[in-house]
Amino acid sequence: MPETASLIAFAAIALGMVLTPGPNMIYLVSRSLSQGPRAGLISLGGVALGFVVYMLCAAFGITALVLAVPYAYDAIRFAGAAYLLWLAWQAIRPGGRSPFHVRALPRDGPRKLFAMGFFTNLLNPKVAVFYLSLLPQFIDPAAGNVLAQLLLLGTIQICISVSVNAMIALSAGSISTFLANNPGWVAVQRWLMGTVLAGLAVKMATEAQR
């Protein structure tokens, strides 16, 4: 199994990415603001299922790649670092907006809410890159079964993402009101996230080859 320090670093990246506004957050917040927290949580169920699908596909596909081509790890590592830098720029770039300032959506039933959450996540490029570029960098073939490591890391990411998004869905209205009255906090959040993601990208790019 991966070392504790590696698991903590992975959890930090997973937390940083879920706090970076993207399609999932924007959709869940929109649903919570338009239709209430219950609708946001039902949509989150679909998002969670999308994560499970990505995790299983990545686990079985990447396992074969890492074992067959050891140096593929370096290519994946640099691609992941580049993507983190891109996310950092997206967080601090001029003109960026808060996901809590979104348009209203029509009211939908539970089945459609769940399905929309599922497909929003499946079509989310941030999730795809996370599982294909970032997650494999924390795999060490010498530490044990590669498939088991991937499933463990995927489970950690899903737990973090679902927990954070659930809290956001439940408190979207309060957060939206707070940010509307305190616009300076939006800039603070964006710069904090950008700094954390950029730091993780540098660490990842300069990490010694395994």
Results as ranks from 00 to 15, higher is better:
T195R: 05
I139V: 15
V129F: 12
I156H: 06
I158F: 09
W191Q: 09
L152V: 12
L132V: 15
S161G: 11
I158N: 08
P136S: 00
G173F: 07
M167I: 15
I160T: 05
S174Q: 14
A198W: 02
S171K: 14
G144Q: 08
V164H: 03
T155F: 13
L197G: 12
L135Y: 03
Q137R: 08
Y131F: 15
A166D: 01
V164D: 00
G144K: 03
L153G: 11
L153C: 12
A142R: 07
G184T: 07
M167N: 01
A169N: 04
N182S: 10
L179H: 10
L150T: 11
V129T: 04
F130A: 01
N165E: 11
I175L: 14
T177K: 12
A142T: 11
L192G: 10
T177C: 08
A180V: 13
L132K: 03
A143T: 01
S171W: 13
A201Y: 04
I160V: 15
A198V: 05
V186K: 14
L151P: 06
P136Y: 13
F138Y: 11
G184N: 09
I175Y: 06
P141T: 01
V196Y: 01
T195C: 07
Q137Y: 04
V146D: 05
L170Y: 06
I175E: 05
F130N: 02
V196D: 02
A166T: 10
A142L: 08
L132A: 14
A143L: 06
W191G: 00
